[in-house]
Design a protein around this nucleic acid. Structure first.
Lengths: 148, 148
DNA sequence: TATTGTTATACTCTATAACTATA
DNA sequence: TATAGTTATAGAGTATAACAATA
């Protein structure tokens, strides 16, 4: 394999992970969804959307944050009506964080926005090529060098 | 184009941009390179490696940061001997930030590490497929929905 | 006037360490 | 004992606003 492949992907990842890129993505995705939805609280919404109601400790592991951080972000979202706290019937120490209808609507909006932006930029690609690329990117990320 | 393509790429991007993923990448890349090289200062090293000696204001634009932030990060790197300040011969208001040999060595190490990790995870791919994927990822990022 | 690098200030977000309640 | 959620605290990093020097 040519060394260039690794470096070419490395450069692309570098651009993707750049602060300015990340901020622009989050800004566009969360625009107009209220003050409570921003780069900080978005991972909580997104994580709960993926996994369903979950404790702060469990969610902390997933989004790479401390319990106390999840609590603080959850409180912001709760005050905005996007999240509610429920007692965990299986463990009375725990509190489940669950999205409200408004919370689900917000995360669905961001999901649609992101997908739409992506599809716009793929519009000029041959359809088969775009499909292949999507599959490969998914494979690369899920079984890749930093998530395996 | 199937709506799935956008969502599949969106999910992959979501994983890549996750805090835990980003921190793990930076941790592995900068491991053992000294206290001055971390997630915070890495973009300054990387930016200077790409563009050559540059003013704090110019670099700020590129890495999505305020001038004062670049100054603070540069000072940390300067104290560690990875960066030096030079007067700009073309503009006596400006100070050029330039990598030292040690700075160049550090960023070269991180580049090789990242490329090596990536190539390891692509080892099981058909070589042609990896090459095509690299080209497509590069195109997607450079002319994509958030960098265009 | 505008822009440079730098510094002080106020703000945000974080992990850590406590605390109480429950397993 | 260990783990749950929460809160107070200290630390790190940021943008903003100043400042003097130069364009």
């Amino acid at each position: 394999m040519p060394n260039d492949v690794g470096h070419e992907i490395a450069d692309a990842l570098g651009t993707l992970l750049k602060r300015s890129t990340r901020e622009q993505i989050h800004r566009r995705l969360t625009e107009g969804l209220g003050e409570a939805v921003d780069e900080v609280t978005y991972p909580v919404l997104s994580g709960l959307a993926r996994s369903g109601p979950r404790s702060a400790a469990g969610l902390a592991d997933e989004i790479g944050l401390d319990r106390s951080g999840v609590t603080r972000r959850a409180t912001r979202l709760e005050e905005a009506g996007l999240l509610r706290r429920e007692p965990d019937p299986a463990d009375r120490r725990a509190t489940l964080l669950a999205l409200t209808d408004a919370g689900r609507a917000a995360i669905e909006t961001t999901r649609q926005r992101l997908a739409a932006h992506i599809e716009d930029s793929l519009a000029s690609w041959p359809p088969g090529e775009a499909r292949t690329f999507a599959r490969q990117l998914h494979r690369f990320v899920d079984h890749g060098p930093f998530t395996a």
